[in-house]
């Protein structure tokens, strides 16, 4: 568990250093995700004993992903007044845009998948 967490944090650290150091528009943890894919490839290719138990901490975090958004979500409760002035425009824009984005994304995905003969 601890070794697994250290590997994950190491990947994130590498991602943050690269993102900030090179001024990339990608968040550090997303680069860390790519680095973690590299770690998993290494594990598959060379099976070093040090990477044998690399999964538990990650599995644990993903199983409780909802919990991790609670602190940020609570921030909305305390900041609702920033919405007050133009709440109707904001509510309409968020509702319409989120639903439309879901529909356009899923339909685009399916159209191309079907063209490729994927079920």
């Amino acid at each position: 568990m601890i070794g697994s967490l250290a590997v994950i944090l190491g990947c994130q650290l590498l991602g943050e250093v690269l993102a900030r150091g090179l001024g990339l528009p990608v968040p550090g943890p997303v680069i860390g995700m790519a680095a973690m894919v590299g770690v998993l490839w290494l594990r598959e290719r060379f099976a070093p004993p040090v990477l044998a138990g690399v999964e538990p901490a990650g599995r644990f975090l993903l199983a409780h992903l909802s919990l991790l958004f609670v602190p940020a979500g609570v921030g909305v409760v305390g900041n609702l007044e920033v919405l007050a002035a133009e709440w109707l425009a904001l509510a309409a824009a968020l509702m319409v845009s989120t639903v439309l984005t879901l529909v356009v994304s899923v339909v685009s995905f399916r159209v191309v998948a079907r063209m490729l003969g994927q079920a």
Partner: peptide, 11 residues
């Protein structure tokens, strides 16, 4: 933990 969880999406 949001950052580490994002890294864990690699799994």
């Amino acid at each position: 933990l949001l950052g580490p969880a994002t890294v864990a999406l690699a799994l």
